[in-house]
């Protein structure tokens, strides 16, 4: 069974707050799902390269051209307070 502390740690990294009941449910569920993932250890992958890009493209480069885009339109998407075309956020600490 996956530890309660691990679930709390992962929730912190995920920026999610969980109730006691949710933590318990995740403990049970993750134990089951991780067991299910365990089956992959049966596959011999010695010398096999991992695939993260299925078509094999590598290092796609482009010129760093300026692409005119209305920055105000983007700032409008934020629900935060805006000050001088900038988004104001809550204090970090």
């Amino acid at each position: 069974m996956i530890l309660k502390e691990d679930i709390i740690k992962v929730a912190g990294l995920s920026r999610l707050s969980l109730t006691e009941v949710e933590i318990e449910n995740y403990q049970k569920e993750f134990t089951r799902i991780l067991d299910f993932f365990e089956v992959l250890s049966e596959v011999n992958t010695d010398g096999v390269e991992p695939t993260a890009q299925i078509t094999g493209l590598k290092n796609v480069l482009r010129f760093d051209d300026i692409n005119n885009f209305d920055s105000e339109k983007l700032i409008e998407c934020s629900h935060q307070v805006k000050v001088k075309k900038q988004v104001a956020v809550a204090p970090v600490m």
Binding site: F37, L40, S41, V43, T45, V48, E49, P50, T51, A52, I54
Partner: peptide, 13 residues
């Protein structure tokens, strides 16, 4: 987990 699965993905491909 992640790298292992990414390797199995190569084999499936």
């Amino acid at each position: 987990y992640y790298i292992k699965a990414a390797k199995v993905r190569t084999l499936i491909k």
